[in-house]
Structures are given as structure tokens and as C-alpha cells.
Design a binder for these strands. Structure first.
Lengths: 146, 146
DNA sequence: ACAAAAGTTAACGTTGACGTTAACGTTAAA
DNA sequence: TTTAACGTTAACGTCAACGTTAACTTTTGT
């Protein structure tokens, strides 16, 4: 078990097979191992990872290009460790790690800014609600004066 | 003063004239008064309103269709009061107000849910940062043991 | 008064993010 | 073993959200 075909993944993640292959093509989603017949075999980790991708896309409104950036830092290094066993030079790895640190900080800063903006939008909506309710009250009072 | 042409608006809001006309065509942005020559004359309120639209689009990742929905509640009723002087029947107005209340509540619920998800994404990013830093430490220790 | 700058509508072009169809090979249950 | 269900690649279609160009009118500084 712990082996899923593309249709299972599509169903659980709420997207189509076409989209999954498209994401793989773009490098948004890692290419899984294949069966002898060339069928893509996914693991549970793949599914969880794809779910995160969809959340980032939906909630943050990321484009696919931005997703590549985002994923290259957030949890991609876990997947990369398992997917590609890329043995690079020590210096290369070091600079890659430093780059990850920087990207992570940028992502954190960005998401905090977004949260703040969303909070002020929430506040505004609540104020609008108060004003609307006041208006409705007045509206009904006028009606009872006729 | 307090009169702006489309290029002023475009510059201040960081979009193109084409986009402004397109938004007007879609009903996302109210059609302003025209000069005798047919030129669109905007007020400061228009600019502030458009800025809000752009924020909602960028931060919430709304599509233009969703924006129409969003705007029909948030602050649209202010603009509508000034733009269209639609005198409808009392019953009609009442049901419209009730509908606004409901939409407002839905929007507030939705934005709160998004904020929560973004917070958990932020937490995750911070945890990743901690793990990454730990890994880098170990990485450098191994290097000094050679 | 007039040229340049800025405005207009109209219509076709582009890009991103998939959907759909075709033409074909593979797997699994009867 | 065969056939339905499922898989594949390849290529064209689609829709939203603008960009771009063309052909034209209006406004404005000198």
C-alpha cells in the first residue's frame, strides 16, 4: 500500500489529472516513480505535499510561477532529499542553504504583511456592518412614522 | 480641483488606462461623469475606491467576478448612493439591505477563515526556518571534523 | 490658431492555466 | 483472453484579464 495512481491523487486533492501532469511539467510538483508500464506511482507524502500546494495557491493567490519560488523554500528540501539524491559539492550545498534561509525570511515577511492587510480588511468589513445595521434601524424608524 | 483624468488615476493606482476602462465595462469600477468632450472625470473618492479594489484583488486573490460580489457589499452602497440615485420601492430596498447584511456576514466569515489559514502557514514557515537553521549548524559541524 | 499631448472607441493579440479530444498502450477483473 | 477501465503523450481549444495597435477626436500650452 501507500501507492496511489494519478486518479486517486486527483480525487483527494480536488483537481484533475491534467492539472497534475501540468504541474509536474512546470516543476511545481515532483515527478513520481513510474511502474514498468510507465504509470505514475504516488505516495501519501506526494498527496500531502500537493494539498499544501493547493492551499498556497488558493489562500495566498499565488501564480504557478510564484508557487515554484514558494515551494523551493517551504518544504521542498524535504522532498528533494527523497526524490533527487543530488550529491553536490560542499560549497554548492552551502550556498543553496544560505539562499534558502534568505528566501524563507522573505516569505515570512511577505505573509506577515498579507495577514496585516487582511486584518484591516476584516476591521473595515465589521465597521461597515455596524454602519449598515444603524442605517437599517433608521430605515425602519422612518417607516413606523408614516 | 478634485478632478482627475484617467491617466492620473492609472498612475496613482499602479494600473493601466486599459484596465480602468475594462473594469468600468465589467461593472467592477463605477462609470464616472464625463466632460463635454466625453472625457472621464474622476474624484478622489474614485481613486481611493479603486485602490481598495486592487488591494482586495491582490491580497485576497479575488477574480474580477468575485470582486463584483465583494464590492456589492463592502463599500459599494456608499458609492451607489452617490452614483446612481435609484429610487426603488420600500420593500425592494428592505430586501436589498437584508441581502447586504447576509453577504457581509459571509464575507467576514470567509476572511477570518483565510486569516487563520495564513497564520498556520506562517507558523509552518517559522518551524521550517528553525529546522533549516539546525541543519545548517550540523552541516557546519561535520565540515569542521575533517 | 495650431501642433502636441492626451483623450476616445474598436478590434485583434497575448499569456497563463488549464480543458478536451485523438490516437494509442496497459492493467485487471470476468 | 478479452474488454472495459484506466493509463499515456501530443496537440489543439478555451477563457479570463488584460496588452497593443489603429484610426480618430479633444484638450491644452505657446
Amino acid at each position: 500500500m501507500d501507492e496511489y495512481k494519478i486518479d486517486d491523487v486527483a480525487r483527494e486533492c480536488g483537481i484533475t489529472k491534467r492539472t497534475i501532469r501540468y504541474y509536474e511539467e512546470l516543476g511545481v510538483f515532483p515527478a513520481p516513480d513510474r511502474s514498468d508500464g510507465g504509470i505514475r506511482i504516488y505516495s501519501r507524502e506526494h498527496i500531502d505535499y500537493l494539498k499544501k500546494i493547493m492551499t498556497a495557491k488558493d489562500i495566498l493567490g499565488f501564480s504557478l510561477q510564484e508557487l515554484v519560488q514558494y515551494l523551493s523554500v517551504s518544504d521542498a528540501y524535504k522532498m528533494h532529499h527523497k526524490t533527487y539524491h543530488d550529491v553536490k559539492s560542499r560549497e554548492e550545498q552551502k550556498s543553496k542553504l544560505a539562499h534558502m534561509q534568505q528566501m524563507l525570511d522573505e516569505q515570512i515577511t511577505m505573509i506577515r504583511a498579507k495577514i496585516e492587510k487582511m486584518k484591516s480588511m476584516e476591521t473595515e468589513l465589521e465597521e461597515t456592518k455596524v454602519r449598515l445595521n444603524a442605517f437599517i434601524l433608521k430605515f425602519n424608524e422612518e417607516a413606523s412614522q408614516s
